[in-house]
């Protein structure tokens, strides 16, 4: 039975889990992007078709989905900036863990602010 590699600074720790999160959020965003270009393209079919299909995005279930999507985008964005800092800033690798916690703190604040605004619009009953 081969033994696991000895603990490293990266494997099984913050670095690895941020990598997992980055991949998963990236794939989610990519598939939404495909759908989003298609739904926007309906403006070339007719004004009524576009407005009725886009109306589906305004129901509360979709509103929760949009909240999740924006949460994924904001994580991917801030963690992406962290990756750039790790790659290009000479002290980046040394502080990658601290930068992940900074990413998570800013992520919580931004997503909470977005959530309050967007969910109150979606559930506000217009």
């Amino acid at each position: 039975m081969p033994t696991k590699p000895a603990g490293t600074l990266y494997r099984g720790r913050e670095g690895m889990w941020s990598w997992v999160g980055h991949r998963i959020t990236g794939v989610v965003i990519f598939f939404f992007l495909l759908v989003h270009v298609l739904d926007t393209s309906l403006v070339r079919v007719s004004p009524e078709v576009y407005t009725s299909v886009i109306g589906a995005y305004k129901n509360p279930v979709m509103g929760l989905g949009e909240f999740g999507l924006v949460a994924a985008i904001v994580f991917h964005a801030f963690n992406g900036l962290r990756i750039i800092a790790i790659d290009f800033w000479k002290s980046g690798p040394k502080y990658q863990r601290q930068m992940l916690w900074a990413v998570l703190i800013v992520w919580v604040i931004v997503v909470a602010a977005f959530g309050v605004r967007h969910l109150s619009i979606v559930f506000g009953g217009h």
Partner: peptide
């Protein structure tokens, strides 16, 4: 999504 009526304003 954030300005004005947010998502409710989106139509043709």
């Amino acid at each position: 999504l954030m300005v004005g009526q947010g998502i409710h304003a989106i139509d043709f």
